[in-house]
Computed example of a mutant assay.
Amino acid sequence: MKIWVDADACPGVIKNILFKAADRTRVELTMVANHPMKIPQRNYITFLRVSTGFDEADNRILELLDAGDLVITADIPLAAQVLEKEGYALNPRGHLYSNKSIQEQLRMRAFKESLRDSGVDTGGPAPMNQKNTSKFANHLNKWLSDI
């Protein structure tokens, strides 16, 4: 099993948790992004740079993903595709996506997008906090203990 990270928008605190988890368990961790980033020099942690463009990182993750792999992403459509491929998807804020909830999340995303397109300010996500970080770490540790 591997961990894939949609790394362009992944918060630094989450990246650090992932690096420490990879060091502890030696699970393969791949950061996928369209801009360079520093990663620890380990044979089980890699960086995969993709070209700049809409969904390039998402497409590459989906291409390389195997059933049972974990993807870290805040991108709901990507999470839905990961679930379709029998992978696991975890939001950096600690929400574990599920087949049960993903359709509702896609509908809510589309609804908010339609509001924004009509000029309504829907605001953005709240800042990351310790509760989000702890929830993320707990889900990650559970996944790691199950592999």
Rank of each mutant, 00 (worst) to 15 (best):
K2P: 00
I3T: 12
W4Y: 13
V5F: 05
A9I: 02
A9F: 00
I14N: 01
K15L: 06
I17M: 07
L18E: 04
L18H: 11
F19Q: 06
A22V: 06
A22W: 06
T25R: 10
R26W: 09
V27P: 04
E28S: 13
L29A: 09
V32D: 11
A33C: 13
A33D: 13
P36F: 04
P36A: 13
K38E: 15
I39W: 02
P40Y: 09
Q41K: 14
N43F: 08
Y44M: 10
T46G: 14
T46P: 05
F47Y: 12
L48F: 12
L48K: 13
R49A: 10
S51E: 13
S51F: 11
G53S: 04
A57M: 10
A57Y: 06
A57Q: 10
D58S: 12
D58G: 09
I61V: 03
I61P: 00
I61D: 03
E63D: 13
L65E: 05
D66K: 15
D66Y: 10
D66P: 03
D69G: 11
I72G: 09
A74K: 12
I76W: 09
A79T: 07
A80Q: 00
Q81H: 14
V82M: 09
V82Y: 04
L83N: 05
L83Y: 07
E86A: 14
A89I: 01
N91Y: 08
G94E: 09
G94F: 11
L96M: 14
N99S: 09
I102V: 06
I102G: 04
M108D: 03
F111A: 10
F111P: 02
F111H: 14
F111I: 07
K112A: 00
S114E: 12
S114T: 05
L115Q: 14
R116T: 04
R116S: 12
G119M: 06
D121C: 03
P125V: 02
P127C: 02
M128D: 04
Q130E: 15
Q130S: 02
K131I: 11
T133F: 04
K135E: 13
F136T: 00
F136D: 06
N138V: 12
L140P: 02
N141D: 15
K142V: 12
S145R: 05
D146R: 14
D146N: 15
I147Y: 05
